[in-house]
Nucleic acid binder design. Structure first.
Length: 179
DNA sequence: AAAACTGCGGCAG
DNA sequence: CTGCCGCAGTTTT
């Protein structure tokens, strides 16, 4: 992902259509702030992302959003297998959330890990539940691939994005087919 | 400060 | 299989 030059404090809002519905996102000068998908229409996607922002006059169809839209479409078409270079704005995240974020980001494309495994990696094998709690609030799926974290008995557990478990399963299948 | 949540996990019935 | 409890971190009273 090439660096995007931004006027300071500028927030990019964008949306695009993917095989998993309309996707919308926001980007701050620090990186990707929020990303949601599985909306039925462009309008719904934009409303959802804007309502979480506290902005009066959002600029839609921002030209600066175009490379980001392409990035997400590429992932959902199976053409991109890594978001490693994508900057993420983690302001407001707790230390624990950041640690979980970093660990989950290192799970390879097409692979999975259990909540307990992530917790162990962070030094406390009993924090599995807290890991799930943190991932539930992941605002930048699929850049932080929370869909790759499953329960120890190989069930999928939950998925907070609209689309739920079904979506999680489909995303894992997408990666499996392309890996 | 306490209680009430969770995308867990393990171990009983 | 289901149910139950302990767990750590976050959110809500």
């Amino acid at each position: 992902m090439k660096k995007i030059k931004l006027p300071s404090n500028r927030i990019i809002i964008g949306s695009t259509e993917t095989r998993f519905g309309w996707l919308s996102f926001t980007v701050t000068p620090k990186g990707l702030k929020e990303c949601r998908f599985m909306f039925g229409t462009k309008k719904l996607a934009e409303e959802a992302i804007v309502s979480s922002l506290d902005i009066k006059e959002p600029l839609t169809d921002d030209p600066l959003s175009v490379p980001w839209s392409e990035l997400f479409r590429s992932y959902f078409e199976g053409k991109i297998k890594s978001f490693d270079k994508v900057p993420v704005d983690s302001d407001g995240w707790s230390d624990f959330q950041k640690k979980v974020y970093n660990t989950v980001k290192s799970i390879p494309y097409g692979k999975t890990a259990s909540y307990g495994a992530v917790a162990s990696f962070l030094g406390n094998e009993k924090a599995s539940r807290a890991v799930g709690n943190a991932l539930k609030n992941n605002p930048v799926a699929p850049v932080i691939p929370c869909h790759r974290v499953i329960s120890s008995d190989k069930d999928l557990c939950g998925f907070s994005a609209s689309g739920g478990i079904e979506l999680k399963l489909k995303m894992l299948e997408l990666e499996k087919d392309n890996s």
